[in-house]
Write a protein that binds this DNA or RNA. Structure first.
Lengths: 195, 195
DNA sequence: TACTGTAGTGTTAGTCACTAACACATTGGT
DNA sequence: ACCAATGTGTTAGTGACTAACACTACAGTA
């Protein structure tokens, strides 16, 4: 509830021009309550990354595949799940809310920076799921390089998807970005996609 | 001079535990002077990206090569230039200073976030240098995807280089990261390297 | 009914990054 | 000696965020 008011105000007046106190007033609570639910102002906007979801998908991939393929499939799959199941409310409303947050995220430096840093945490989760940090340093390095590159490509897809106002399918967009970066032969269309 | 004091204090006491006022006192100036030279506290640490340098290298690459190859070569080349020519002082001292800043950048969330966002600006510069934003939307998209993925891999190399205390060669590390992400056939060893 | 722990909230007073507006000093050119 | 530009300091703010403490609502328990 607080978050909905926050995003609305941020869109209306701009992120920087809106104070946390104003968000609190709009939501009918005290500023302190806002901070208890959202540790920082940025957290009022940033989209949930669902690290766990991605990690599960990574584990489910075949170790026969190259790293980029495994990570790419997991990301595409996770995106599909995230978009389709939404957050429990009206799906269309959810998509619009997600798009509004994404647009803020892309256009506001502070939000963009923190989001990119969150991706960094997701990268670590992916490497962990790949078992990369277990032993060899070189294996870990390769996993980190592949994961970071895949996440960067995914971010490009997110930006494009937001620019298109969600008209296209997000998983397809991610696949397209991965193909652009890594080439056709390495990228699939999701774990259960038709190839 | 201000920056040197800042980095020293940040290393000694921690970034968050050091106030800008303390930096100013250490440097013998007023806090306002610090802000005039460095718009934000983060800027006291963040390493110069030299967007222009990278852009020039991009333009110098052959358009016959795949995007990732062109960007990768430019990044490797730029890193070599940056490390070798330093900042005018003692090269060893420069390397240590660079390493100190990198370590802070990696371990401090606020710095890491802003640095990743700076990479995002570098990505735009690369796409511009590639001529990506001139016409077709799809071409721009491919350029963004490739550039972001290359920069992410480079970041992995930076982290590893810092962990190794600069023992390895940074350009080699970047080449290694690019190879890990994109495969052997797409990555060179710099524009004038031996292949 | 009264008792108690717990979770959510509010209040207050602070710290610190950062900005704006204005005054002062130094320097280099005419 | 005059002027403009540049760098610096001072002051008074705004706003994100923290810490400490008190209060309320509500659960389960006797």
């Amino acid at each position: 509830m607080i978050q909905a008011h926050a995003v609305r105000l941020f869109v209306e007046r701009g992120y920087d021009a809106t104070t946390v106190t104003e968000v609190a007033e709009a939501a009918g609570v005290s500023p302190m309550t806002v901070y208890r639910h959202f540790p920082t102002k940025e957290d009022l906007v940033l989209v949930d990354q669902n690290k766990q979801l991605v990690a599960e998908r990574i584990v489910a991939t075949s170790t026969d595949q190259p790293l980029v393929r495994r990570i790419g499939d997991a990301l595409i799959d996770s995106a599909a799940t995230l978009v389709s199941r939404g957050y429990g409310n009206d799906p269309e409303e959810n998509t619009q809310f997600l798009l509004a947050r994404l647009r803020l995220m892309i256009s506001t430096p502070a939000l963009r920076a923190k989001h990119l840093d969150n991706n960094y945490a997701l990268q670590q989760a992916i490497v962990d799921a790949l078992g990369g940090d277990a032993g060899d340093d070189d294996i870990a390095f390769n996993a980190h390089a592949a994961a970071s590159a895949c996440l960067a490509a995914m971010h490009t897809a997110l930006v494009r998807w937001a620019e298109d106002d969600g008209q296209t399918e997000l998983p397809d967009m991610i696949a397209k970005a991965l193909t652009a970066a890594f080439g056709d032969e390495v990228v699939g269309t999701g774990a259960d996609g038709q190839e």
